[in-house]
Design a protein around this nucleic acid. Structure first.
Lengths: 342, 342
DNA sequence: TTGTAAGCGTTATCAG
DNA sequence: CTGATAACGCTTACAA
């Protein structure tokens, strides 16, 4: 077992000072070619690599970024994470992930844990509970300390920082308009019952699109389901009493369930009812029929978020003139079988 | 912007020495109640938190664990990750994730990056390319340095370390036996063409089960598809020329595609053909019909891996007598509609 | 009871 | 060209 070698070891071994070794390994002009070669050869031989922790302490820069997301087993977040990770890695940063599990407390604990020197900045999506409580002191504390923060998808106006979002309202509007253009008239909305910022924006877009096309907004056609619902009972009640010819769902899972439910009730998708979901993930591509859905371009969001963060981290504006940006990523509608206007 | 406060600040402010502050905050008996109270109050007021990096440097322990996986947008890995993250967090560890993207080079780079002091140990699943090249020097280097390593799922015998796997062979055997018990006779296997350890183990189980039940192993019934295949052409060729009454797929995606293909060709699942997949993820639960599949219990694997790693990290056997364990997690068959023996 | 000093591994400044 | 020294923030013998 060859323990990690340090500058000190090399210095002792080669009978030079630590600073000489340090400089030699950085190819400093100050050191004679001869000594440099000797030292470099030795270092190579023993596979010397500087200790990141020591460098972090010295530079007050960890080259780590902290990512806090509500759930990792969730296609969208996972996709954003991939974007973050790729960009960050390219820039020489590592990514520390913490999962808040939609819990306010865990979010706070994780942030505090990381804020004590472990990371240079945060990228996060708020937990559902945090949005519900509307308590953002932990975020403010972090920004007050001068730690850069980028919020994505689940954001809040309460905190001053960079943000990356998709225009959920416009996206829902687009989806509903498409259905209307396809001749659909009774369009239902299946959304979450939790108060999530994104859901309500999507609902706004849904309402607006109907209104603009002079279609009535029927509250009975808006179904609110618990975030992780497992029973289709609710949906049965809903569809049994209503005639719908199109459904917009705020996520993939609701959409796939809806399709299944419709087919079990002898309604064909898309001929009888067309369905559009949000989150263009694996389910959309592989459901039967395949699901038209609003792509949120998570990877792109992740890339943008990482870029914004790293730019801030590496800029030395420090007490920056509070110049925060909000990037809006265009959502696109991926059309598949569930809306074929056949 | 209140910059982070350090022991030095407190000491200066309160006109005591740094070590007094340090001890006072640790509630040391050495310090008078009076001073302690003064210091603690001050620290609370200014929200003092020790700097993790400094502590890491001192203790030579980062309380970070490095996780390297081939792909984060993949239900199984994501699930394992969740298990790791939860357990690690409970134990006060953070998790740094790097994605190898199935690439050998990235795997090597990421490991080296993290091995220079950033983490106390690794948990990883080998990339496809690494398994193909059969080159594990980067792993050996890490273990040689005394950094604990736990391999999961995609493992190799070439490296001496703790491992967590499922018995893929037994799992496939179980699945095939179940189909046979249901009266199926011509059972196909849809597997990957890459050389992945897990796939080949599953194939072995498949073959063994058939043999044990005195059924012929027909090579034409074994279909090898590229890892991320997008065209169903291959599968068309396959099924068009064969009569099968059951299919075992080495992953969910292949399984769902198979179902879709069968239905498009007027074969009903499960009445005409029953289908079982591996990886009990969201697709299995939501496909139509729902998919019977082999649950790999990723979260449990993650928990076990994290436990093994942290135990090693925190044990002081150091030059441990090479006592490495391999934990086998029981796979279970989750029966859903695709195998209802109706 | 409090303080000094060394050390964790590096880098940077300043002398020699 | 090379080396001593201080510093990053903290802990911990050891002195006082």
């Amino acid at each position: 077992m060859k323990r990690k070698i340090t500058l000190k070891h090399i210095a002792r071994e080669l009978d030079v000072s630590i600073s000489t070794v340090s400089k030699a390994l950085k190819n400093s002009e100050e050191i004679s070619r001869e000594t440099k070669e000797k030292i470099q050869a030795f270092a190579k031989l023993y596979n010397y690599k500087p200790n990141n922790i020591a460098i972090s302490l010295k530079n007050k820069r960890t080259k780590n970024i902290g990512v806090i997301i509500p759930d990792i087993v969730h296609h969208f977040f996972t996709t954003v994470f991939r974007g973050i990770e790729k960009y960050a890695n390219d820039k020489g940063y590592n990514v520390i992930v913490c999962v808040s599990d939609e819990s306010f407390d865990k979010e706070v604990i994780n942030m505090e844990m990381l804020a004590n020197g472990s990371i240079d900045g945060f990228i996060m999506a708020l937990s559902a509970e945090t949005q519900l409580k509307n308590d953002y002191n932990h975020l403010k504390q972090v920004t007050d300390q001068g730690i850069p923060l980028v919020l994505f998808d689940r954001v809040t106006d309460e905190v001053n920082c960079d943000k990356v979002i998709i225009d959920d309202q416009a996206a829902a509007h687009m989806a509903v308009s498409k259905m209307i253009a396809d001749g659909r008239q009774r369009i239902a909305l299946v959304t979450t019952e939790d108060y999530l910022n994104v859901s309500s924006k999507r609902e706004e877009g849904y309402r607006k699109a109907l209104e603009e096309h002079n279609l009535p907004v029927r509250e009975e056609l808006i179904l609110r389901l618990p975030y992780q619902y497992e029973d289709e009972k609710l949906s049965e009640v809903f569809f049994a009493t209503q005639e719908v010819d199109a459904v917009l769902c705020v996520n993939e899972i609701f959409a796939v369930r809806t399709i299944r439910f419709l087919e079990d009730n002898d309604l064909r998708v898309p001929s009888d009812v067309s369905v559009i979901g949000f989150t263009d993930g694996i389910l959309s591509r592989l459901s039967n029929p395949t699901l038209s859905s609003v792509a949120q371009h998570g990877e792109e969001m992740g890339t943008i978020a990482a870029k914004m963060l790293i730019d801030k981290v590496e800029s030395d504006i420090e007490e920056g003139e509070e110049e925060y940006r909000t990037e809006v990523v265009e959502a696109t509608l991926i059309e598949r079988e569930s809306t074929r206007s056949s």
